[in-house]
Amino acid sequence: MSAVAPTVSAPSAPRQSGSWATVAAQMFGADFLKLRRKRGILIWALVLAFAPLVIYFVVSVIQHSSNPVKHGPAGGAKNFAEGLPVLALFFGPLAAILIGVEAGTGDASAGVFRDLVVTGRSRLALFASRVPAALALCCLVIGGAYALLVIGTFVFASNLPTPDAAVVLNSLGFALVATGALCVVAVGLAALTTSKPGAIIALIAWQVVASPIIAHISSLGSARELLLSQSLAHFSPVHVEGGHGATVVLSEGTALLALVAWLAVFLALGAWRTRTMDA
């Protein structure tokens, strides 16, 4: 160990702590760095977001080329409407859950949470910086997959009509909101449970298995409006049907309220746990 010494200033010496925005930006950058360098999670998120669309287009192109009469072109507005829920409501959320859970538990599972706590920075700030970082990575992954969907829609459209610019933009917003919401819920749940496998299994089981089943139990009536999957599907700019989405008819306000409630509850639980747990 050589003798390059950081200087010790007097205890009462004024210290620059930077503006709130600067600190927040740096903490966001740090959390984003942690996530993007988590190669295993990133690869799985990319696979989950891209692979279903690639397979969808490849299979459709092969079918169309082998029997053009029976199978139409792989692109166009109709295939776009089928591909969008696959990305926004099924496989995209799986990618978002992986990213969100990693953001929520990464520090604790690496054992560095306590080292961040001993900096004196508030635990709420430590929790809060994870959310935009997870959202940023989620948006990049889903945005990339969405670009693939749009490219495939236009390249393989042949003589079919294509979605107009408004639908393309609205659908992008929908995909980002639908997956981003799951990502935020995952951050909160993971911080609450501090268990990566537990949070992943619970969220996937709820969103992919339990929610569609519950949505089809008509005897539950309006209670089904509280399902996150239903409120998210409500915002789709293209018609969503079948097991992936809108089984329950919701009003705009109810859908928005349900979505906000899910986000608020899980963010609050994650923040509470981060603030109170032994580090």
Binding site: R15, Q16, S17, G18, T22, V23, Q26, M27, G29, A30, L33, K34, R37, K38, R39, G106, A110, V112, D115, L116, T119, R121, L126
Partner: peptide, 19 residues
């Protein structure tokens, strides 16, 4: 964080401590 370099790990803490 084992998947980050030593310098990057210090950057993470530096970000939390302040500019």
């Amino acid at each position: 964080h084992p998947n980050l370099s030593g310098r990057e790990n210090l950057r993470l803490v530096a970000a939390v401590r302040g500019p």
